[in-house]
């Protein structure tokens, strides 16, 4: 067999395996969407919406950590910016349409993300984490002192409004399907980015930055765009979350929140598409259960212990470990 024949053959096999994987994923996603559509029959819709909002937040975060290798410790700033902007618009102007509020809030988070990015991508590794953390603290103090956020009290009773002028979001079921639609949009976007040529460059940067630079890629610009998209999606999550719970508070801006989204991503599986979704579901459900149990005060300690255990022996997360297990036993 000539070398070109081998090449054609292996290329064909490669494409076929890719197609098989794509088909398998389509089936998996189909099942998950079907489940999400009927889920409100089984679970309380508000709980499901909380899970979806945090899952979107974690997906946004994972785009950076999982696919560019940048650990942001400041994503709470974008979540809070999305939330506060939405809250401000919906409470100040009566009858303001929620879709407009979401668009403006997401744009605000995008701008903030761009500004963060310009400053933070000047350093790498742990410095990047420290810088994003410090910038987010700056934003936290801004929200703490600004009168419009009502400081420590937060904004309450934000009206949900009427979507597109005819869907009353006061109805929890209508709200749920809207949140689900937003979530699927966010997931599909990240899925698209990750599999695009742009996404492959991001992964190249993650694996070997000097090599990506020597290949002629403007690494800083790729990072900045990724950071901005990630911030935009985090802002979108914050905006929708504010409409769901009708409140925006400093909890969202606190560095604790940045830590929580890291935990969600880590538990679920860094650098996998479904990982952050599963991680968010796990963490939110756990917090939900613990809050009603006698050990409610120990939530932080339990989260900390999970953090430590994850880092010590479960670094690939649920999805990553499953993939490893699958590859070892079924391939």
């Amino acid at each position: 067999m000539s070398t070109s024949a081998i090449k054609t053959h292996s290329r064909k096999a490669y494409l076929e395996s890719k197609q098989r994987a794509a088909r398998r994923n389509m089936i998996l996603y189909g099942v998950l969407v079907a489940f999400a559509l009927v889920a409100p029959v089984i679970f309380y819709p508000v709980f499901l919406m909380k899970v979806l909002c945090f899952a979107l937040f974690a997906i946004a975060f994972n785009l950076l950590l999982g696919y560019v290798g940048l650990l942001s410790f400041g994503h709470a700033a974008f979540l809070a910016t999305g939330g506060y902007t939405t809250g401000y618009l919906l409470t100040t102007y009566s009858g303001f349409s929620p879709e407009m509020a979401i668009i403006i809030a997401t744009s605000a988070a995008t701008l903030l993300g761009f500004a963060f990015g310009v400053v933070a991508i000047r350093r790498q590794g742990i410095y990047f984490a420290m810088i994003t953390l410090a910038l987010a603290q700056l934003v936290f103090f801004f929200y703490l002192q600004s009168p419009f956020t009502r400081g420590e009290d937060g904004m309450h009773g934000i009206p949900r409004g009427t979507l597109l002028g005819f869907i009353d979001l006061q109805n929890n079921l209508a709200m749920y399907y809207f949140v689900l639609a937003v979530f699927i949009f966010g997931f599909a976007l990240v899925q698209r980015i990750v599999h695009s040529p742009y996404g492959h460059v991001l992964k190249a940067i993650k694996e070997n930055e000097p090599r990506a630079i020597s290949l002629g890629y403007n690494v800083d610009r790729y990072k900045l765009v990724a950071f901005t998209i990630s911030a935009a999606l985090a802002g979108l999550a914050g905006s929708v979350k504010t409409i769901v719970f009708q409140l925006a508070s400093l909890t969202d801006a606190h560095w604790h929140m940045s830590g929580e989204v890291i935990l969600m991503t880590l538990v679920g599986g860094v650098g996998t598409l479904l990982g952050p979704v599963i991680g968010a579901t796990f963490v939110i459900s756990l917090e939900h259960q613990l809050a009603q149990s006698p050990v409610g005060d120990w939530v932080d300690v339990i989260l900390g212990v999970i953090f430590i255990l994850c880092v010590l022996m479960f670094r690939a997360g649920f999805v990553g470990e499953f993939q490893k297990f699958y590859k070892k036993n079924f391939k």
Partner: peptide, 10 residues
């Protein structure tokens, strides 16, 4: 970094 963050939380 994440490990020491967990330690701090605990």
């Amino acid at each position: 970094l994440l490990l020491t963050f967990g330690v701090a939380l605990v």
